[in-house]
Design a protein around this nucleic acid. Structure first.
Lengths: 227, 227
DNA sequence: CGGGGGCTTGAGGCCACTCAACGATAGTGG
DNA sequence: CCACTATCGTTGAGTGGCCTCAAGCCCCCG
């Protein structure tokens, strides 16, 4: 039970920022921190959505499965991101910790109650849903019409944009995750990365293949067509 | 200027239904009907989103283009559907009439004003955005992971579900539109339909290839894997 | 009747997938 | 400390599903 005394807005900025100072009596919303080991499930598709989550540290993948095991990752959630926000009663994705992850969670019901009275919170709920929608729309274009090289380039640019640290891109997810996000196989992702490496567009840091430095953002961007 | 005297809810059911009876003085919202000839643009991507649209008769496609002309259709809008609803200031898709189409339109600004005061309208905005999001999420799975036959089967099932008339599916869009919706080529779509025809799962009505009768919904559904 | 758009079908090619081998790294336990 | 194993990533060879290119049919329409 954290944040008893802190303002809510400091803890769930995506939902509460831009809110005018609220009534002197602070709204009490339960905020618990919770940790998940690498690879464990945070919630499953079609489970009731009782909580909304925010990544504190770590990374999360949200995905859907076909009955034969094919997987489509809809989004990666990094530090600060809010996920599991559903308007309907059930989750539409399964969420798993990619690495050891701690999240902050709040009762969805509490959020709804606040949204009832606070117009700003309600609008921010709409804004977050909209930004999820925008991402999904852009991703449809990628999945439906882009080549493997274009997809990988777009992925690197997206991760670079979202990354806090300038310079080195530290990818928390494995090649298979990237592949399932981009609608490819892990081998194709690996080949695309190798090709970008051969073209001196990116470099690997040390011996790990999860830390990438973008040597030529401009050339990289030329592979990610505008729309 | 229609609907001067009618209630708003009757005209924009997607936004206003489930609303409790509002104040005795009806809210005045401009409602114009407008017609577009087959193939003409209703609005373009990145244009300011001043209006929200509802299909009265006809059909509309919403799509994004890559700079080299590759196209991804994000959604088809049929009679009754609301489209062009943006939270940001600009449209994120281009919308075109697939056939001769009449739409009803309202000033977005008016809608926002109503949403400010009427919580139910605000919630319905959120619900509509959410249902767009759900569709996009499902479509990502289709585009990223399904085979051509699965995609076409899913498309037929979706159109059948949305179609008002039971029995015959009257598709307003051409094969190229279907292909750009499913991330395929028109030839692949045609081959998939032929294959379903050969399997006695569907039939064509008369000499036209746009009217389809589903002979065996169960077998069709078996091609569209659950997730 | 000629022309064009929409659709189907065939033949061939290519990009991404499949299958496989291999190296590197990290974690485990002797 | 060193096998031992499992996981992750890269790379190569070959396949296959969808794309490309092309021909031809049908229907509509001027």
């Amino acid at each position: 039970m954290l944040a008893r005394s802190s303002t809510v807005s400091a803890d769930f900025p995506g939902i509460f920022t831009d809110s005018k100072p609220r009534s002197s009596a602070p709204i009490r919303i339960f905020l618990n921190e919770f940790s998940y080991k690498k690879g464990t499930e945070i919630f499953g598709e079609k489970e009731p959505a009782d909580y909304v989550y925010q990544v504190v540290t770590g990374a999360v993948r949200s995905y859907k499965l076909l009955s034969d095991g094919r997987r489509q990752i809809g989004a990666f959630h990094l530090a600060g991101d809010i996920f599991g926000l559903e308007i309907g009663s059930d989750h539409r994705f399964t969420a798993e910790a990619i690495v050891d992850t701690t999240v902050r969670l709040m009762k969805r019901r509490s959020l709804e109650l606040v949204a009832e009275s606070d117009v700003t919170v309600a609008r921010n709920l709409l804004n977050m849903t909209t930004s999820n929608l925008r991402h999904a729309e852009d991703h449809m274009l990628l999945l439906g019409r882009k080549t493997s090289l274009e997809r990988v380039a777009a992925f690197l640019i997206e991760m670079d944009r979202r990354s806090t640290a300038a310079g080195v891109l530290a990818l928390p997810m494995c090649r298979r995750d990237i592949a399932d996000y981009l609608g490819l196989t892990l081998e194709t992702v690996s080949r695309a990365l190798s090709r970008l490496h051969d073209l001196d567009i990116l470099g690997f840091v040390g011996n790990t293949q999860r830390q990438i430095v973008l040597r030529d953002r401009e050339k990289l961007a030329s592979f990610d067509l505008q729309n």
